[in-house]
Computed example of a mutant assay.
Amino acid sequence: MAEDINYNKVHFVASYGKASQIPPSTCPEVSFVGRSNVGKSSIMNKLFNRRSLVKVSSTPGKTSNINFFEADGVHFVDLPGYGFAQRSKGERERWANLIGDFLESERSFNLVVSLVDIRHDPSKLDLQMIDYLQENGFNFVVALTKADKLSKGAQGKQLASIRKQLHVPADRIFVTSSQTGQGIDHLKQLIVDYCLGEDDGVEALEESE
């Protein structure tokens, strides 16, 4: 049950500017990735039932480090948003390298949550991220954000369209909203299944090699 993780105990652990600075995994980890304006911080705050534990900025692309949070022995990893054009080329490259170095490191990748804005077709970078996760055998799901901006009918059409574009199974993609809480209970259950159940992200990675 989702109650197995007490999100009331969630707290900030540390922030890292380089993947080489991050200590080895000591517990299950859930990593969140997505474009810089996809609403990642808002979804994480809704998951944690906090208003501002994960910093939400009015300026997309503000998060430049990898931030770790912890609740009941599970680490939640907030990766920098990718694809924000108004940052310098050097900074964008640093973020890309930071994300890449993290995903290529030896860690407990129990679950990667890839966030995509339901209102738009996936970007080239979104497609590349999903391809990367699939090709490297990650346990991952796609959470479509900002569903409250669309009607129920439009949500269903976009869900079907984006699923086909990303080439992911129906059970790996779902709809969320940080405003209404839609999909959050499902996300919590997925986290329990992959972090406290029999699934093991590290084993999945080893099997894919």
Rank of each mutant, 00 (worst) to 15 (best):
Q155F: 00
G90K: 15
R87D: 14
D148I: 08
D126C: 02
E70K: 03
S108L: 08
V175A: 05
E104N: 14
L125N: 04
Y132V: 06
V192M: 04
R51F: 12
D185G: 09
L159N: 07
I173F: 02
L144E: 01
L103T: 06
P169K: 05
V168M: 00
S108H: 13
L115P: 06
G100H: 12
S105G: 12
K124S: 07
K164P: 05
S58V: 14
I99R: 03
K164N: 04
R51K: 15
N97H: 12
S123H: 10
D72W: 11
N139K: 12
R163W: 09
F48C: 11
V112L: 05
T180C: 05
S58G: 12
I184Y: 00
R51E: 15
S151T: 14
G183E: 11
D126F: 09
L53S: 12
L125Q: 10
P122A: 13
L190H: 01
V77G: 12
Q158F: 05
P60I: 05
R172P: 00
Y132W: 09
V112G: 03
I162N: 10
L133W: 08
F174A: 08
V56S: 14
G181W: 03
K188C: 01
V192Y: 04
H75F: 13
I118P: 06
S161M: 13
I173D: 07
L190T: 02
D121L: 15
P80W: 00
L111G: 06
Y132P: 01
R92V: 11
L159E: 09
Y132S: 11
P169A: 03
S161C: 08
G181H: 03
N110L: 10
L79Q: 07
K62G: 11
D72R: 06
D101W: 05
A160N: 13
R92E: 03
E135P: 12
Q179P: 03
